[in-house]
C-alpha cells in the first residue's frame, strides 16, 4: 500500500483507436477514468480547483505509445498492484494502465525516445526506398522548415537523431530508431516531413509511429 498524498507516476499505453485522442482530451479522459475507477485524484487548491495531473511527454495525435508517463497524487491510500487492471477497465478502448510507482526520476533527466515506425509506399519498391532512406538519414545535416508560432523557422534535425534503421517488407519500410525527446524535441513526424521537403522521391505515402521506450542521456530506461 502507498500512503495518500504520495507523488505517483503511471506508465500507460495509448494505441489503436485511442491514438486519435488529443493531449487535452486525454487529460480530461484521465480525470474521468480515475473517478470511474474510484481513485480520488488530488486537486489543486484555490479558486478553481482542478486535479493535479501532468503527462511528461505529450504525444502527437495519430502516434501510438507503450511508454507514456503521467504524474499525479491521490487523496486515499493506494494498492499499487491492483491499479493497472482496475484503471484500464475504466479507460476508453486503446488506453491501458501498465504500472504505477511512487516518485520517479526528474523530468529533465529524460532525454532519448526509442521508437518504431512504418513508412507505406503504394507504388515504389520498399527495398529501394530503404536503401535511399539509409543514405538520406546518414547526412550530417538535415535542415527542414518548420512552422512555429511566429511563422516558419529552419532547423537541423540531424543532431536529434541518435540512430535510425530501415528494413523493407512487402509494401512498407519498417523503421527503428532513437531520437531526442527533449532539448531538442524531435517530433517523429518531422522524419517524414524532412523527406517531403528534401527528398520527395523517398517520401512515404503514409507514415505512422509508435513510442517504445523513454531513456535518459546514458540510454538507461527512464522511470
Amino acid at each position: 500500500m502507498i500512503e495518500a498524498g504520495t507523488k505517483l507516476r503511471l506508465r500507460f499505453a495509448k494505441e489503436g483507436r485511442a491514438v486519435y485522442i488529443s493531449h487535452l482530451d486525454l487529460m480530461r479522459t484521465m480525470q474521468r477514468a480515475f473517478l470511474r475507477a474510484g481513485y480520488p485524484l488530488k486537486y489543486s487548491e484555490g479558486f478553481n480547483p482542478h486535479p493535479v495531473i501532468s503527462i511528461l511527454l505529450p504525444l502527437g495525435v495519430g502516434a501510438a505509445s507503450v511508454c507514456e508517463l503521467m504524474d499525479f497524487s491521490l487523496t486515499a491510500p493506494l494498492d499499487e498492484a491492483e491499479l493497472p487492471e482496475r484503471l484500464t477497465a475504466a479507460m476508453p478502448e486503446g488506453v491501458r494502465a501498465l504500472e504505477v510507482y511512487p516518485g520517479g526520476r526528474k523530468v529533465k533527466e529524460l532525454k532519448w525516445l526509442e521508437l518504431e515506425g512504418v513508412f507505406e509506399y503504394d507504388a515504389r519498391d520498399p527495398a529501394e526506398m530503404a536503401a535511399g532512406l539509409r543514405d538520406f538519414f546518414a547526412r550530417p545535416s538535415i535542415v527542414i522548415t518548420k512552422k512555429t508560432k511566429r511563422g516558419t523557422g529552419e532547423s537541423d534535425i540531424a543532431p536529434a537523431i541518435r540512430f535510425l534503421s530501415f528494413s523493407p517488407d512487402e509494401k512498407r519500410v519498417l523503421l527503428r530508431g532513437v531520437i531526442s525527446a527533449q532539448e531538442p524535441t524531435l517530433n517523429p513526424e518531422h522524419l517524414a516531413n524532412a523527406l517531403r521537403q528534401l527528398a520527395p522521391e523517398l517520401a512515404p505515402d503514409f507514415a505512422e509511429f509508435r513510442r517504445l521506450e523513454v531513456c535518459d542521456a546514458e540510454m538507461k530506461v527512464f522511470r
Binding site: R17, A18, S22, R32, V61, G62
Partner: peptide
C-alpha cells in the same frame, strides 16, 4: 484521420 479536424469524433472506441 490525421488530415481532419478533431479525428477522435470519427473513431468510436469511447468508454
Amino acid at each position: 484521420l490525421p488530415k481532419v479536424q478533431k479525428p477522435a469524433r470519427y473513431t468510436g472506441g469511447e468508454y
